[in-house]
């Protein structure tokens, strides 16, 4: 097991987005988050790279990623008024794809801000 150190890592837990965190990580988990606050430390230490969940679930049953993507695309395509919602705990790159998805669907697009 190798220990990696990431300097000036970015914490996305709250809106402060602190970018001075020093992360110490082994292969599957972060063991130390220097300079992070209580909330940030909990955020970094509670997420691991373990395979804890199945790749995908369709109607509660385990499925492959490819199947889930096809089923999701079919549901969204068949809908008259599909909604794309959320986009908080994700990257700007994924958010851009979400906007393109809503545009392609002729659907609704909304974020946490409206809550």
């Amino acid at each position: 097991m190798t220990l990696t150190v990431v300097n000036n890592a970015t914490c996305t837990f709250c809106g402060c987005v602190c970018d001075d965190i020093e992360l110490h990580a082994d292969d599957v988990r972060i063991v130390k988050a220097k300079k992070a606050c209580v909330l940030g430390t909990a955020w970094f230490l509670n997420h691991t790279a373990e395979r804890k969940y199945p790749d995908a679930l369709i109607d509660g049953k385990e499925a492959t990623l490819d199947e889930a993507i096809e089923v999701a695309a079919t549901y969204l395509h068949e809908a008259d008024m599909p909604l794309v919602y959320g986009m908080s705990n994700t990257t700007c790159e994924a958010q851009r794809e979400c906007v393109a998805l809503a545009d392609l669907l002729g659907g609704l697009l909304d974020s946490h801000t409206s809550l």
């Binding site: 996305t12 837990f13 709250c14 809106g15 008024m81 986009m87 908080s88 705990n89 994700t90 990257t91 700007c92 958010q95 851009r96 906007v99 393109a100 809503a102 545009d103 669907l105 002729g106 659907g107 609704l108 697009l109 909304d110 974020s111 946490h112 801000t113 409206s114």
Partner: peptide, 26 residues
Amino acid sequence: RGHGNVTGADVVMRWQTGYPFGITFN
């Protein structure tokens, strides 16, 4: 702002559509 990247969601939607949230493409 809280909740990770909500600010990014506002910014990306404003950049792509001109509006920050509550949008329809219908």
